[in-house]
């Protein structure tokens, strides 16, 4: 169907060899980032992130669940991603695809390792029951780089989540009592490599001709998740260079979106 993407992939390759991008951006430049928060009132937290033409909605629902047997004193965090067919012509209805599972897991690792939410604080007076955070990533429009858009949406949603009132082991969803406490602020940066050129924030067309890609999630002083994807490899020096770049770009995004890290 989408023959254009296929054909333009080749052109994009040739342009990148000359150091140019098809949309005129610099190689290490993000597209326009916009975030709208509290967009779904029925969810306890939500945010919509627009990264160029990519649009991702993150929604947080709070629930009650049994704790994991090996972690009885911690709440539950569960992340899932839905590639709904409204987002792109090749997304199909049905069970989660491989890519949606990868996306959910990478975003999950970033927020879990960075300890944006202290799961230890999600216990209840009943030892059999802990609070659960259900984070849903709803892809609305797909134009590449879902990792970064999803992480931003997830972080902003979590930072604007309110906990419902807990009464007799039941949540009263109509009453929201306190804000979910958050600390760190993980931001992911996705790079792609083509020949010897490194580009940041690839579009859908670019993703087709890129190999390999790497997503590095950082807080202001730690790397908290990495995913190398697609075929091909990076050299040791390239990888270290990209870590530096990810720290730098992560800080820029935190400033742009006014996201603060608390100790």
């Amino acid at each position: 169907m989408e023959i254009i993407r296929e054909i333009n992939g080749e052109l994009i390759k040739n342009l990148l060899k000359q150091g140019k991008r098809a949309d005129g951006r610099g190689k290490l430049q993000y597209r326009k980032i916009e975030v709208e928060k509290n967009v779904i009132d029925n969810a306890e937290g939500s945010a919509l992130c627009r990264l160029g033409n990519t649009q991702v909605l993150a929604a947080v629902k709070i629930g009650l669940a049994a704790p994991f047997p090996d972690r009885p004193d911690e709440g539950v965090l569960s992340t899932s991603a839905e590639f709904t067919p409204i987002a792109a012509s090749h997304f199909e209805p049905g069970p989660p695809s491989i890519d949606s599972i990868e996306l959910a897991r990478v975003v999950d690792r970033g927020i879990r390792s960075s300890e944006i939410v202290d799961l230890k604080k999600l216990t209840t007076s009943n030892p059999e029951l802990v609070k659960a955070i259900y984070l849903d990533l709803w892809i609305i429009d797909y134009d590449g780089n879902l990792f970064d858009a999803s992480t931003i949406a997830a972080v902003v949603a979590l930072k604007n989540t309110y906990l419902p009132k807990l009464e007799n082991d039941k949540l009263i969803y109509e009453e929201r009592v306190e804000k979910l406490q958050t600390k760190a602020c993980p931001i992911s940066c996705t790079f792609g490599k083509i020949e010897n050129h490194i580009i940041l924030d690839p579009t859908f067309d670019e993703e087709i001709s890129l190999s390999p890609m790497i997503t590095i999630t950082t807080t202001s002083n730690h790397v908290c998740a990495v995913q190398k994807s697609k075929g091909g490899g990076f050299s040791k020096n390239e990888l270290l260079e990209l870590v530096d770049l990810a720290f730098e770009k992560g800080q820029e995004i935190r400033q742009l979106l006014d996201l603060r890290e608390l100790d």
Partner: peptide, 16 residues
Amino acid sequence: GFQKGFNNFKKRHFRR
């Protein structure tokens, strides 16, 4: 070569 690369991509993404 390019076509082959894209076909692999398609296998993953354009399964229709």
